[in-house]
Write a protein that binds this DNA or RNA. Sequence first.
DNA 1: GTCTATATAGGGATAGAC
DNA 2: GTCTATCCCTATATAGAC
Lengths: 211, 211
Amino acid sequence: MSPRVSPSGAPSVPDSGGPGDPGVDGAKGKSTRERILDIALELFTEQGFDKTSLREIADRLGFTKAAIYYHFASKEDILMSIHLRFHEFGREMLTQMGDGPATPEMWAGLLDRAIDMILEHRTLFLFHERNQAALENLHRERHDAEHEDLQAKFRQALSSENIDLEGRVRMAAAFGAVMASLAVAGDAFADVPSDKLGLVLRKVVADLLRV
Amino acid sequence: MSPRVSPSGAPSVPDSGGPGDPGVDGAKGKSTRERILDIALELFTEQGFDKTSLREIADRLGFTKAAIYYHFASKEDILMSIHLRFHEFGREMLTQMGDGPATPEMWAGLLDRAIDMILEHRTLFLFHERNQAALENLHRERHDAEHEDLQAKFRQALSSENIDLEGRVRMAAAFGAVMASLAVAGDAFADVPSDKLGLVLRKVVADLLRV
DNA sequence: GTCTATATAGGGATAGAC
DNA sequence: GTCTATCCCTATATAGAC
């Protein structure tokens, strides 16, 4: 318990990963904190969260595991930080949905954005696919209100009274179709240019939702 | 190392879960081995493989964790045994595919069967969804030739030269659509009767593959 | 900001009694 | 077929030096 606060007063901004924000030290690239997150994302995606030790992460970066505790309060804190990057996208989707009842048209628009996001952050989405268990444990402990909202909205849309069963199944199916094509079977289409793949997927989604 | 062989000479038959094979002891239901697998499947699906200890499994069954080692050589052996149940379905799909090039029609037939299987063994598929990382580690150690075959065939179909990109994406999408509707968003459609859900899904798949 | 050294716990696995 | 007792290792996490 008694989580230690990150020493740098910096808020946990959604680091876009771009070459934007300069590190605290040299003018050179990313801060140590971000470098830890990058390596962690890579290893967690490859081997899974539980099978990856802090030692492994530290070794890759050239220092010892204890040093990590300067930047993060715990191993779970790292997991959470990565999850937060992902969460940004969810928030965007949420606002886009508004609070009216979900319609197939809206869903199509949502997935349209999602396709771009997934294409651009493939590993991040793959990470979520492959670490569902660890992430659920995370939410069981820390009750993230924001996450609940998102999840609830999602489920609500999929159980909406206004839409018949077939329509709702089609919505779920469209979502799964996108995820499977981009994240899960990712390396099967790895050589396909993103724009081309995106184009086909949009067609598939439109077809599926009949819009 | 030096894996201990299961004492009961029984081959690891694909226990269908039915009330078929009587236990060794009383005429009453399942053998201890199967009861362990059932509880393990439940806990692994709920909390994840790594977050579930042998102690937890044993507690649920009313004995201590050491007793488990009479039935299984290791914790991974339990994971493997559960995975083998799943593998039966893959094998069936494999033979159904034959060795000719995959066509959308064949794929539709494949998914037609898959829908039934998933509907009937939802938790088993959900388990696989949520423990992808642990399962991949399993295959990294023990080189399962059969599994390689299945995986290879799957990828091969998705990268087949005979089918254009859109066709292949549609195949991947169809698969993802089914998985998402049945396993991932499972509780959203939990109250929907299986036959009704299956019917809609078949329609969606046919639509998606244009057959 | 990064390090060494160390505390502590929990989990997987073994040996052998009953 | 199930149990107790125990070994051993790894991993998280802490304290505090540089």
